[in-house]
């Protein structure tokens, strides 16, 4: 198992390098001018000032040199300062990452619970009313875009009923307690779960049906084992492997969805930061956001793969101690 872990970890570094290089090149070739956007437009600066600022920021050098210097600094733990306001990138990113991790973490746990429970209910009661309801709901979820659902929920719960806050982490001028923080979490988390759970539910339903139709499940029933054992030792562990694999594979979709939701709900996470930095061509911030997102997805994938390997006796034996 350790050997497997080391092998997989070694693969992460080239992946991150590739992501950063691609992001750098794309960003540099996109239209827009970071120096001009600092003062609101090229026409507000003299040519001499413009060149001085560009030189200070190292923007007059070839792209390859800029990338090399950026990479060298990052490897030394120096992420630079925001071109927009001079704040340390590492501080800003850390704060945003915590917010995004909270959002995706809570929503992820929600998706796992919803899809395992709904998938179990539909899979074990296939072609009965529960199954039809769950499957129809999954289809609706599959077809609903997150941003549209987010706006709908805001309209309903924040504007019409005024039960929940519609944006941000906290409401300015109101007390900041655990309860208000949770209230701010409800709508964005609900949006992610409702807009994303569909395919997960369908997958679990299918896996559960496969297990129930399997020889080993039938043999276990023929052995007189009670429901409790059939569910926890046969159905769940065997349905879990394809589910976790899919969780890993679909993580980029989920992160993308969460970024959109951050924008809809002004949730101060990586996604919102990314969007603002992209508009301002704030390349130090943008690169950090891309790299952190890439690392998040890659590490998530790695955890999923490790879990799958650990759940699979064949792989466990291959890399194990025995």
């Amino acid at each position: 198992m350790l050997r497997y872990l080391v092998l997989r970890l070694a693969g992460v570094i080239p992946q991150l390098l590739l992501i950063s290089l691609l992001a750098f090149v794309i960003m540099k070739s996109a239209p827009g001018d970071p120096v001009a956007s600092l003062v609101g437009g090229r026409e507000f600066m003299t040519q001499a000032d413009y060149e001085r600022v560009a030189r200070n920021l190292g923007l007059n050098e070839p792209v390859v040199v800029q990338y090399g210097r950026w990479l060298g600094n990052v490897l030394q733990g120096e992420w630079g300062h925001s071109i927009q306001d001079g704040r340390k990138v590492s501080t800003v990113i850390a704060g945003a990452l915590a917010n995004t991790a909270l959002l995706i973490g809570v929503a992820g746990v929600g998706i796992v619970l919803v899809s395992l429970i709904a998938g179990h209910l539909a899979g074990t009661r296939a072609q009965r009313p529960v199954d039809y309801i769950v499957s129809a709901a999954a289809l609706v979820s599959f077809a609903t875009p997150a941003f549209w659902l987010g706006l709908l929920l805001i309209l309903l719960f924040a504007v019409v009923f005024d039960w929940l806050p519609s944006s941000g982490l906290v409401t300015l001028g109101s007390p900041d307690t655990l309860v208000t923080r949770l209230q701010h979490l409800i709508l964005p988390v609900a949006t992610i779960i409702l807009a994303h759970a569909g395919p997960y539910v369908r997958l679990v339903r299918g896996s559960v049906r496969d297990v129930l139709a399997s020889d080993y499940y039938r043999a276990a029933v023929a052995r007189g084992l009670p429901r409790r054992i059939l569910m926890w030792r046969y159905e769940l562990p065997n349905a879990l492997t394809p589910f976790i694999t899919w969780c890993g594979v679909s993580l980029p979709l989920l992160v993308g969805g969460a970024f959109i939701v951050e924008w809809v709900f002004s949730w101060p996470g990586i996604g919102l930061l990314f969007l603002k930095a992209a508009i301002a061509k704030n390349y130090t911030m943008l690169m950090a956001a891309v790299l952190v997102t890439g690392a998040f997805v890659i590490i998530g994938n790695l955890i999923a793969d490790l879990l799958v390997a650990w759940l699979n006796p064949k792989l466990r034996r291959q890399y194990g101690h025995r």
Binding site: S214, D215, Y216, A219, R223, P237, N238, N312, P313
Partner: peptide
Amino acid sequence: IGMIFQSPESSFNPVA
């Protein structure tokens, strides 16, 4: 009443 099935390997839980 016990039962023996046709395919031996697939009648065991693969994860146990």
